[in-house]
Nucleic acid binder design. Structure first.
Lengths: 128, 128, 128, 128
DNA sequence: GTGGTCTAGACCACG
DNA sequence: GTGGTCTAGACCACT
């Protein structure tokens, strides 16, 4: 379900967060779906339970999942909590970060845009 | 010249690195230009000289600047040290990171591409 | 594992870098191997942890090792980051430096070549 | 006569030392030749007189030149002051340094030897 | 005064 | 306990 790559530069909890975010965004995980328990997922991924807990906590704060006491953790109904301004601000920040990391690599703007377009292609369904 | 934002998630030395990278990439800083001294910039930004030294050291390793003992730090002639494979790998990594960050913000692919295009527009120089 | 010589002209962090570079190049350290922790190696070599951290940071920038937060530092899969031009430039620089150093020692070219050949012999692996 | 490259990683005084060493080794400068005065060379190279003085001092310590009070600085008769063991030790040190810097560049031993041979070729006359 | 190295000690993020 | 960042302050090499 979730792939943990030891060679990845991202911390483990972030890889879990990113994994679920992508699955929700692509529709692999539908609202209402029950996620594995903290301990269960930790065992399955052979990581520390605290790490999974941290990932779930981050996803909850983000509003992507919610935990129902004694029942489990579930994918939320999609609802855009953030204001347009906030979302726009985050997009711009992320793009500026991309540009600063890529600017010295010597690519043409078109190459960069093409690469992004290819990466975005499989996500067409998530335009809520 | 360089802006340090305490609320920024990036560490201070990274903000310095990014600042100079952008200035070199946009041509604001031309090859041969002398950068401020470590102690001078540290005082100006009110950070520790070691922090500036670390930023300069990173830029030196990247091949963007070079330092001469007792003289100062200077912008290098542009030279691409990295192989195409390595550059491509870094581009792809950066783009994947962008996508996982913005995927939950609910933007259309076109909006994201447009935003990137606008950010890339002023950087046409030096992209050869 | 790593030898620090106080009489050496190279700074301590460079001796650490060189030591690990040789061990990786000769295959004594295989990809995936965990390096000693910064604090542990610092204690063992009786140097400051920051000095070891600086060496590890340099090796990371070089792409020889990678570090994972809270886990440790590991030897990378070998991967050539640099372009042929850059590698060739560095080789020529290093050779010119060698020549200017030994030129006044009064050796025959053949003696110098023989000495280099002997030093290169045990390193046949990983030279692909 | 001597070339000072501002982009060179070597300090200025070292470039001067290396320059004279090469000229003596190749026979461009013969024993007994008078070198320019400290101030004269400093003016010609547009560097600080202290820098030239330091270079001359290093060359004197090396036994390559000698200053005759009130007359000037002259190239010495070649005489090998160092013991074979010392010369050999220095050669080995220099070669080990070359190897550690080049080992990660991924060249075949033959390529390295060829490069050294080419660099050594023009110096055949100096095998005293 | 310039950069380069090193030490000592602190705080944070991650597992 | 692991690495990452930052501060403070010292000493050295070079110009």
């Amino acid at each position: 379900m979730i792939q943990i790559t030891t060679g990845d530069s991202r911390p483990v909890f972030q890889q879990i967060v990113d994994g679920f975010r992508m699955q929700v965004a692509t529709g692999e995980l539908l609202p209402g779906t029950k996620l594995p328990s903290t301990r269960g997922l930790a065992m399955q991924l052979t990581v520390n339970p605290n790490t999974v807990a941290k990932a779930y906590s981050a996803l909850t704060a983000e509003g992507l999942i919610e935990s129902r006491q004694g029942v489990g953790v579930f994918v939320c109904e999609p609802r855009q909590q953030l204001s347009y301004e906030e979302r726009r601000r985050r997009l711009d920040t992320a793009i500026q970060q991309l540009v600063t990391t890529v600017i010295t690599l010597g690519f043409e703007p078109d190459e960069i845009l093409d690469a992004l377009e290819k990466e975005l292609a499989p996500l067409l369904r998530k335009s809520s």
